[in-house]
């Protein structure tokens, strides 16, 4: 069966996010009042798997082996049929 994984990779709490700082600064220049801003990256991946559990396991492996770097990243995975 085909499953779709929505994988979000974000920086761990406390990690410096230079891109977010630059974007926040630009929003302030446009007159918005910005409290805090963080960035994240989302991957939407469709792939075959035998079960929902297996699909989650495969998505987790994709994160660990390539998509995220555990030194700086935190990831969340949501799998839908």
């Amino acid at each position: 069966m085909e499953y779709t994984a929505h994988i979000t990779i974000s920086l761990k709490k406390g990690m410096l996010d230079p891109e977010a700082n630059a974007i926040g600064h630009a929003l302030s220049n446009l007159g918005f009042e910005i409290g805090s801003l963080s960035t994240a990256r989302q991957f939407t991946i469709s792939f075959p798997a035998d079960s929902h559990e297996k699909a989650e396991e495969l998505a987790d492996q994709m994160c660990q082996r390539l998509l995220a770097n555990p030194v700086i990243h935190h990831s969340t995975i949501e799998v839908t049929p």
Partner: peptide, 9 residues
């Protein structure tokens, strides 16, 4: 460790 985005990007 990692080499990541410069503090001033």
């Amino acid at each position: 460790g990692v080499f990541t985005r410069n503090a001033y990007p």
